[in-house]
Simulated assay, not measured.
Amino acid sequence: MAGQSATSPLSLALVAGEPSGDMLAARLLSGLRPHLPGARFHGIGGEQMMAQGFESHWPMDKLTVRGVLEVIPRYREIKGIQNQLRDQLLAERPAAFIGADYPGFNLGLEEQLKAAGIPTIHYIGPQIWAWRGGRIKKIIRAVSHMLVVFPFEEEIYRKAGVPVSYVGHPLAELIPLATDEAGARRTLGLPEQANVVTIMPGSRMSEIKYNTVAFISAARLLKQRDHSLRFVVPMAGARQRQYFLELVAQAGLQDVELTLLDGQSHTAIAAADAVLVASGTASLEVALFKKPMVIAYKMMALEWQILRHFGYQPWIGLPNILAREFLVPELLQDAANPQALAEAMWQQLTDAPHRLRLAQRFSDMHHSLLRNSAQESAAAVLKVIQA
Protein backbone atom coordinates (compact mmCIF):
# COMPACT_ATOMS: atom_id res chain seq x y z
CA MET A 1 0.00 0.00 0.00
CA ALA A 2 1.17 3.52 -0.84
CA GLY A 3 3.33 5.30 1.68
CA GLN A 4 3.51 2.58 4.36
CA SER A 5 6.49 0.57 5.54
CA ALA A 6 6.21 -3.11 6.32
CA THR A 7 6.49 -2.43 10.07
CA SER A 8 4.38 0.70 10.61
CA PRO A 9 0.60 0.52 10.97
CA LEU A 10 -1.46 1.80 8.06
CA SER A 11 -2.07 5.52 8.42
CA LEU A 12 -4.83 7.58 6.82
CA ALA A 13 -4.97 11.34 7.29
CA LEU A 14 -8.28 13.24 7.16
CA VAL A 15 -9.38 16.85 7.58
CA ALA A 16 -12.88 18.14 8.26
CA GLY A 17 -13.31 21.85 8.86
CA GLU A 18 -16.96 22.08 9.93
CA PRO A 19 -19.79 19.90 11.30
CA SER A 20 -21.07 18.70 7.91
CA GLY A 21 -17.61 17.42 7.00
CA ASP A 22 -17.27 15.82 10.43
CA MET A 23 -20.46 13.87 9.76
CA LEU A 24 -19.28 12.78 6.30
CA ALA A 25 -15.87 11.66 7.49
CA ALA A 26 -17.37 9.81 10.48
CA ARG A 27 -19.58 7.80 8.12
CA LEU A 28 -16.55 6.99 5.99
CA LEU A 29 -14.53 5.93 9.04
CA SER A 30 -17.35 3.64 10.18
CA GLY A 31 -17.12 1.92 6.80
CA LEU A 32 -13.32 1.68 6.85
CA ARG A 33 -12.86 0.38 10.41
CA PRO A 34 -13.97 -3.23 9.71
CA HIS A 35 -11.51 -3.43 6.77
CA LEU A 36 -8.61 -1.64 8.50
CA PRO A 37 -8.91 -2.57 12.20
CA GLY A 38 -5.31 -1.66 13.05
CA ALA A 39 -5.11 1.55 11.05
CA ARG A 40 -4.37 4.97 12.49
CA PHE A 41 -6.82 7.69 11.44
CA HIS A 42 -5.64 11.20 12.28
CA GLY A 43 -5.57 14.85 11.19
CA ILE A 44 -8.26 17.42 12.04
CA GLY A 45 -11.83 16.48 12.86
CA GLY A 46 -14.76 16.87 15.20
CA GLU A 47 -16.63 14.86 17.80
CA GLN A 48 -18.30 12.46 15.36
CA MET A 49 -14.95 11.50 13.84
CA MET A 50 -13.34 11.13 17.25
CA ALA A 51 -16.16 8.80 18.28
CA GLN A 52 -14.84 6.52 15.50
CA GLY A 53 -11.35 6.48 17.08
CA PHE A 54 -10.01 9.45 15.12
CA GLU A 55 -7.08 11.45 16.53
CA SER A 56 -7.46 15.21 15.97
CA HIS A 57 -4.25 17.24 16.22
CA TRP A 58 -6.13 20.57 16.36
CA PRO A 59 -9.70 21.40 17.44
CA MET A 60 -11.92 21.45 14.35
CA ASP A 61 -13.34 24.86 15.27
CA LYS A 62 -9.89 26.35 14.59
CA LEU A 63 -10.85 25.97 10.92
CA THR A 64 -14.56 26.73 11.02
CA VAL A 65 -15.10 30.02 9.21
CA ARG A 66 -17.49 31.13 6.50
CA GLY A 67 -16.88 33.29 3.47
CA VAL A 68 -13.92 35.25 2.16
CA LEU A 69 -14.40 38.19 4.50
CA GLU A 70 -14.48 35.97 7.59
CA VAL A 71 -11.34 34.10 6.51
CA ILE A 72 -9.16 37.21 6.03
CA PRO A 73 -8.53 38.09 9.72
CA ARG A 74 -7.75 34.44 10.52
CA TYR A 75 -5.80 33.63 7.36
CA ARG A 76 -2.36 33.48 9.00
CA GLU A 77 -3.56 31.15 11.76
CA ILE A 78 -5.34 28.79 9.35
CA LYS A 79 -2.46 28.85 6.85
CA GLY A 80 -0.07 28.05 9.68
CA ILE A 81 -2.12 24.99 10.64
CA GLN A 82 -2.21 23.88 7.00
CA ASN A 83 1.58 24.19 6.69
CA GLN A 84 2.25 22.33 9.92
CA LEU A 85 -0.06 19.50 8.92
CA ARG A 86 1.45 19.36 5.43
CA ASP A 87 4.95 19.01 6.88
CA GLN A 88 3.81 16.26 9.24
CA LEU A 89 2.17 14.32 6.43
CA LEU A 90 5.08 14.72 4.02
CA ALA A 91 7.34 13.26 6.71
CA GLU A 92 4.93 10.47 7.63
CA ARG A 93 3.63 9.67 4.11
CA PRO A 94 0.21 8.21 4.96
CA ALA A 95 -1.46 5.70 2.64
CA ALA A 96 -3.81 8.50 1.56
CA PHE A 97 -5.13 11.90 2.55
CA ILE A 98 -8.90 12.41 2.61
CA GLY A 99 -10.33 15.92 2.61
CA ALA A 100 -13.91 15.99 3.88
CA ASP A 101 -15.44 18.95 2.06
CA TYR A 102 -13.88 22.28 3.23
CA PRO A 103 -12.30 22.85 -0.22
CA GLY A 104 -10.58 26.18 0.49
CA PHE A 105 -8.27 24.44 2.96
CA ASN A 106 -8.26 20.87 1.71
CA LEU A 107 -7.68 21.39 -2.02
CA GLY A 108 -4.56 23.46 -1.33
CA LEU A 109 -3.23 20.79 1.00
CA GLU A 110 -4.19 18.00 -1.40
CA GLU A 111 -2.36 19.68 -4.27
CA GLN A 112 0.90 19.70 -2.32
CA LEU A 113 0.49 16.12 -1.08
CA LYS A 114 -0.43 14.74 -4.50
CA ALA A 115 2.60 16.44 -6.05
CA ALA A 116 4.71 14.57 -3.47
CA GLY A 117 3.16 11.23 -4.49
CA ILE A 118 0.63 10.82 -1.68
CA PRO A 119 -2.81 9.72 -3.00
CA THR A 120 -5.51 12.31 -2.27
CA ILE A 121 -9.25 11.76 -1.99
CA HIS A 122 -11.79 14.55 -1.74
CA TYR A 123 -15.17 13.69 -0.23
CA ILE A 124 -17.93 15.86 -1.66
CA GLY A 125 -17.11 17.49 -4.94
CA PRO A 126 -16.92 21.29 -4.75
CA GLN A 127 -20.01 22.74 -6.39
CA ILE A 128 -18.31 23.72 -9.64
CA TRP A 129 -21.69 23.18 -11.31
CA ALA A 130 -23.05 26.09 -9.24
CA TRP A 131 -20.18 28.59 -9.25
CA ARG A 132 -16.39 28.90 -9.64
CA GLY A 133 -16.20 26.36 -12.46
CA GLY A 134 -12.58 27.37 -13.05
CA ARG A 135 -11.75 25.51 -9.86
CA ILE A 136 -11.79 22.25 -11.88
CA LYS A 137 -8.21 23.01 -12.99
CA LYS A 138 -7.03 22.98 -9.39
CA ILE A 139 -9.09 19.86 -8.66
CA ILE A 140 -7.34 18.03 -11.50
CA ARG A 141 -3.97 18.92 -9.95
CA ALA A 142 -5.05 18.19 -6.37
CA VAL A 143 -7.34 15.17 -6.36
CA SER A 144 -6.50 11.54 -7.10
CA HIS A 145 -10.11 10.43 -6.60
CA MET A 146 -13.32 12.38 -6.02
CA LEU A 147 -16.26 11.07 -3.97
CA VAL A 148 -19.55 12.77 -4.90
CA VAL A 149 -22.93 12.74 -3.18
CA PHE A 150 -25.23 13.78 -6.04
CA PRO A 151 -25.77 11.49 -9.07
CA PHE A 152 -25.36 14.20 -11.74
CA GLU A 153 -21.86 15.08 -10.49
CA GLU A 154 -20.27 11.84 -11.73
CA GLU A 155 -20.41 12.85 -15.39
CA ILE A 156 -19.03 16.33 -14.67
CA TYR A 157 -15.88 15.02 -13.01
CA ARG A 158 -15.47 12.10 -15.38
CA LYS A 159 -15.54 14.46 -18.38
CA ALA A 160 -12.86 16.55 -16.67
CA GLY A 161 -10.67 13.48 -16.30
CA VAL A 162 -10.97 13.22 -12.51
CA PRO A 163 -11.53 9.64 -11.24
CA VAL A 164 -14.87 9.73 -9.42
CA SER A 165 -17.29 7.57 -7.43
CA TYR A 166 -20.92 8.39 -6.60
CA VAL A 167 -21.42 7.15 -3.03
CA GLY A 168 -24.90 8.49 -2.19
CA HIS A 169 -25.70 11.19 0.33
CA PRO A 170 -25.31 10.18 4.00
CA LEU A 171 -28.30 12.29 4.99
CA ALA A 172 -30.55 10.12 2.82
CA GLU A 173 -29.68 7.20 5.11
CA LEU A 174 -29.85 9.10 8.38
CA ILE A 175 -33.29 10.55 7.64
CA PRO A 176 -36.14 7.99 7.43
CA LEU A 177 -38.15 7.70 4.24
CA ALA A 178 -41.35 8.18 6.26
CA THR A 179 -41.56 11.06 8.74
CA ASP A 180 -43.09 10.48 12.18
CA GLU A 181 -44.51 13.95 12.67
CA ALA A 182 -46.71 12.98 15.62
CA GLY A 183 -43.79 11.29 17.39
CA ALA A 184 -41.57 14.32 16.87
CA ARG A 185 -44.21 16.59 18.37
CA ARG A 186 -44.58 14.34 21.40
CA THR A 187 -40.81 14.42 21.88
CA LEU A 188 -40.85 18.23 21.85
CA GLY A 189 -43.93 18.51 24.05
CA LEU A 190 -46.04 20.02 21.26
CA PRO A 191 -49.71 19.19 20.75
CA GLU A 192 -50.11 16.76 17.84
CA GLN A 193 -52.68 19.04 16.22
CA ALA A 194 -50.60 22.22 16.59
CA ASN A 195 -49.61 24.37 13.64
CA VAL A 196 -45.80 24.28 13.83
CA VAL A 197 -43.23 26.41 12.02
CA THR A 198 -39.57 25.49 12.46
CA ILE A 199 -37.07 28.33 12.02
CA MET A 200 -33.45 27.55 11.12
CA PRO A 201 -31.38 30.74 10.75
CA GLY A 202 -28.13 28.77 10.39
CA SER A 203 -25.48 27.12 12.55
CA ARG A 204 -22.59 29.53 11.91
CA MET A 205 -22.35 32.70 13.93
CA SER A 206 -22.30 34.86 10.80
CA GLU A 207 -25.49 33.21 9.53
CA ILE A 208 -27.20 33.86 12.85
CA LYS A 209 -25.99 37.46 12.72
CA TYR A 210 -27.54 38.24 9.36
CA ASN A 211 -30.63 35.98 9.33
CA THR A 212 -32.04 36.12 12.85
CA VAL A 213 -33.87 39.44 12.91
CA ALA A 214 -35.55 38.97 9.52
CA PHE A 215 -36.54 35.37 10.35
CA ILE A 216 -38.04 36.18 13.77
CA SER A 217 -39.71 39.35 12.48
CA ALA A 218 -41.38 37.14 9.87
CA ALA A 219 -42.51 34.82 12.68
CA ARG A 220 -44.14 37.78 14.44
CA LEU A 221 -46.07 38.63 11.25
CA LEU A 222 -47.15 35.01 10.82
CA LYS A 223 -48.36 34.90 14.42
CA GLN A 224 -50.55 37.92 13.71
CA ARG A 225 -52.18 35.97 10.88
CA ASP A 226 -52.61 32.76 12.88
CA HIS A 227 -52.43 32.98 16.67
CA SER A 228 -52.25 29.18 16.95
CA LEU A 229 -48.83 28.96 15.30
CA ARG A 230 -45.98 27.49 17.35
CA PHE A 231 -42.36 28.39 16.49
CA VAL A 232 -39.51 25.96 17.12
CA VAL A 233 -35.87 27.05 16.75
CA PRO A 234 -33.10 24.43 17.02
CA MET A 235 -29.73 25.85 18.07
CA ALA A 236 -26.40 24.29 17.06
CA GLY A 237 -24.70 25.09 20.38
CA ALA A 238 -24.59 27.26 23.49
CA ARG A 239 -22.70 30.11 21.77
CA GLN A 240 -25.21 30.21 18.93
CA ARG A 241 -28.13 30.16 21.38
CA GLN A 242 -26.74 33.06 23.44
CA TYR A 243 -25.99 35.16 20.35
CA PHE A 244 -29.40 34.43 18.87
CA LEU A 245 -31.13 35.57 22.07
CA GLU A 246 -29.02 38.74 22.18
CA LEU A 247 -30.05 39.61 18.61
CA VAL A 248 -33.72 38.92 19.35
CA ALA A 249 -33.56 41.19 22.41
CA GLN A 250 -31.71 43.98 20.58
CA ALA A 251 -34.41 43.95 17.88
CA GLY A 252 -37.22 44.09 20.44
CA LEU A 253 -38.63 40.73 19.37
CA GLN A 254 -38.86 39.15 22.84
CA ASP A 255 -42.66 39.07 22.51
CA VAL A 256 -42.41 36.34 19.84
CA GLU A 257 -42.90 33.09 21.72
CA LEU A 258 -40.22 30.64 20.61
CA THR A 259 -39.34 27.11 21.66
CA LEU A 260 -35.54 26.99 21.55
CA LEU A 261 -33.92 23.57 21.34
CA ASP A 262 -30.37 22.46 22.06
CA GLY A 263 -29.63 20.53 18.87
CA GLN A 264 -32.52 18.23 17.87
CA SER A 265 -32.71 19.86 14.44
CA HIS A 266 -34.08 16.70 12.81
CA THR A 267 -36.80 16.39 15.44
CA ALA A 268 -37.67 20.04 14.91
CA ILE A 269 -37.94 19.55 11.14
CA ALA A 270 -39.98 16.36 11.51
CA ALA A 271 -42.42 18.18 13.82
CA ALA A 272 -42.98 21.08 11.43
CA ASP A 273 -45.78 21.94 9.04
CA ALA A 274 -43.27 24.16 7.20
CA VAL A 275 -39.71 25.37 7.70
CA LEU A 276 -37.99 28.73 7.22
CA VAL A 277 -34.41 27.69 6.55
CA ALA A 278 -31.09 29.30 5.71
CA SER A 279 -29.67 28.04 2.44
CA GLY A 280 -27.20 25.19 2.84
CA THR A 281 -27.27 21.53 3.77
CA ALA A 282 -30.18 22.16 6.14
CA SER A 283 -32.45 22.81 3.14
CA LEU A 284 -31.67 19.32 1.85
CA GLU A 285 -32.50 17.91 5.28
CA VAL A 286 -35.88 19.64 5.14
CA ALA A 287 -36.53 18.15 1.69
CA LEU A 288 -35.64 14.66 2.91
CA PHE A 289 -38.20 15.11 5.68
CA LYS A 290 -40.69 15.98 2.87
CA LYS A 291 -41.54 19.38 4.37
CA PRO A 292 -42.59 22.60 2.61
CA MET A 293 -40.05 25.34 3.10
CA VAL A 294 -38.84 28.81 2.26
CA ILE A 295 -35.10 29.06 1.66
CA ALA A 296 -33.57 32.41 2.60
CA TYR A 297 -30.12 33.86 3.07
CA LYS A 298 -28.57 37.17 4.07
CA MET A 299 -24.92 38.11 4.39
CA MET A 300 -22.62 41.14 4.67
CA ALA A 301 -23.54 43.60 1.91
CA LEU A 302 -20.02 43.71 0.44
CA GLU A 303 -19.79 39.93 0.33
CA TRP A 304 -23.18 39.76 -1.40
CA GLN A 305 -22.04 42.22 -4.06
CA ILE A 306 -19.02 40.01 -4.75
CA LEU A 307 -20.75 36.63 -4.76
CA ARG A 308 -23.98 37.51 -6.57
CA HIS A 309 -22.15 37.66 -9.92
CA PHE A 310 -20.54 34.21 -9.68
CA GLY A 311 -23.59 31.92 -9.90
CA TYR A 312 -24.04 29.70 -12.96
CA GLN A 313 -27.67 28.79 -12.41
CA PRO A 314 -30.81 30.44 -11.08
CA TRP A 315 -31.06 28.37 -7.88
CA ILE A 316 -29.03 28.35 -4.67
CA GLY A 317 -31.10 25.92 -2.57
CA LEU A 318 -30.10 22.26 -2.88
CA PRO A 319 -33.70 21.01 -3.29
CA ASN A 320 -34.21 23.37 -6.23
CA ILE A 321 -30.80 22.53 -7.73
CA LEU A 322 -31.59 18.81 -7.61
CA ALA A 323 -35.05 19.38 -9.07
CA ARG A 324 -33.71 21.84 -11.69
CA GLU A 325 -36.63 24.14 -10.94
CA PHE A 326 -38.01 26.39 -8.21
CA LEU A 327 -39.87 23.79 -6.18
CA VAL A 328 -39.75 26.09 -3.16
CA PRO A 329 -39.21 29.86 -2.84
CA GLU A 330 -35.74 31.35 -2.46
CA LEU A 331 -35.44 34.82 -0.96
CA LEU A 332 -31.96 36.31 -0.83
CA GLN A 333 -30.41 39.39 0.76
CA ASP A 334 -32.77 42.40 0.46
CA ALA A 335 -35.56 40.15 -0.83
CA ALA A 336 -35.38 38.22 2.46
CA ASN A 337 -37.27 40.91 4.36
CA PRO A 338 -39.84 40.05 7.06
CA GLN A 339 -42.90 40.80 4.94
CA ALA A 340 -41.73 38.71 1.97
CA LEU A 341 -40.61 35.83 4.20
CA ALA A 342 -43.92 35.80 6.06
CA GLU A 343 -45.94 35.86 2.83
CA ALA A 344 -43.91 33.04 1.28
CA MET A 345 -44.18 30.96 4.46
CA TRP A 346 -47.94 31.53 4.61
CA GLN A 347 -48.27 30.06 1.12
CA GLN A 348 -46.23 27.02 2.15
CA LEU A 349 -48.46 26.53 5.17
CA THR A 350 -51.81 26.93 3.46
CA ASP A 351 -51.51 25.60 -0.12
CA ALA A 352 -52.60 21.98 0.38
CA PRO A 353 -52.19 20.77 -3.25
CA HIS A 354 -48.69 22.27 -3.34
CA ARG A 355 -47.81 20.45 -0.12
CA LEU A 356 -48.87 17.11 -1.62
CA ARG A 357 -46.86 17.71 -4.81
CA LEU A 358 -43.80 18.64 -2.78
CA ALA A 359 -44.05 15.50 -0.66
CA GLN A 360 -43.98 13.32 -3.79
CA ARG A 361 -41.10 15.21 -5.41
CA PHE A 362 -39.07 15.10 -2.21
CA SER A 363 -39.77 11.39 -1.83
CA ASP A 364 -38.39 10.76 -5.34
CA MET A 365 -35.37 12.89 -4.47
CA HIS A 366 -34.78 10.87 -1.31
CA HIS A 367 -34.72 7.57 -3.21
CA SER A 368 -32.28 8.96 -5.79
CA LEU A 369 -29.78 9.88 -3.04
CA LEU A 370 -30.11 6.70 -1.01
CA ARG A 371 -27.07 4.42 -0.94
CA ASN A 372 -25.01 2.80 1.82
CA SER A 373 -22.59 5.73 1.84
CA ALA A 374 -20.34 4.27 4.55
CA GLN A 375 -19.75 1.13 2.51
CA GLU A 376 -19.60 2.89 -0.88
CA SER A 377 -17.15 5.57 0.25
CA ALA A 378 -15.00 3.05 2.13
CA ALA A 379 -14.85 0.79 -0.94
CA ALA A 380 -13.66 3.71 -3.08
CA VAL A 381 -10.95 4.63 -0.56
CA LEU A 382 -9.77 1.02 -0.29
CA LYS A 383 -9.37 0.83 -4.07
CA VAL A 384 -7.18 3.93 -4.01
CA ILE A 385 -4.87 2.80 -1.19
CA GLN A 386 -4.62 -0.76 -2.52
CA ALA A 387 -3.73 0.34 -6.05
Rank of each mutant, 00 (worst) to 15 (best):
M1R: 07
S8V: 06
S11H: 13
L12V: 05
A13S: 02
L14K: 01
G17Q: 06
P19M: 01
G21H: 03
M23N: 08
A25D: 01
R27C: 13
S30R: 12
S30K: 11
H35L: 09
H35D: 11
A39P: 02
P59Q: 13
M60A: 09
R66G: 14
R66P: 11
G67C: 12
V71N: 10
K79N: 15
N83C: 15
A91Y: 11
P94W: 08
L107H: 02
L109Y: 06
L109E: 03
L109G: 01
A115S: 06
G117T: 04
A130F: 13
G134C: 12
I136T: 13
I139K: 08
I140V: 08
R158Y: 14
A160H: 07
G161I: 13
V162M: 13
V164R: 00
Y166T: 02
G168V: 07
P170W: 08
A182E: 08
G183C: 00
E192K: 10
A194E: 12
P201Y: 03
P201Q: 04
R204L: 04
M205Y: 04
S206L: 05
K209D: 13
A214E: 09
A218P: 08
A218Q: 09
A218G: 11
K223W: 12
H227Y: 15
L229F: 11
F231D: 09
G237H: 03
R239C: 12
Q242F: 07
V248M: 07
A251L: 03
Q254P: 05
T259L: 02
I269H: 04
L276A: 05
A278K: 14
V294N: 07
A301K: 15
E303S: 14
I316T: 12
R324I: 09
L332I: 10
A336L: 11
A336P: 09
L341G: 05
A342E: 08
A342Y: 07
A342V: 09
E343G: 11
W346L: 10
H354D: 10
L358R: 10
Q360R: 11
S373D: 07
S373W: 04
S377I: 02
A380L: 02
V384F: 06
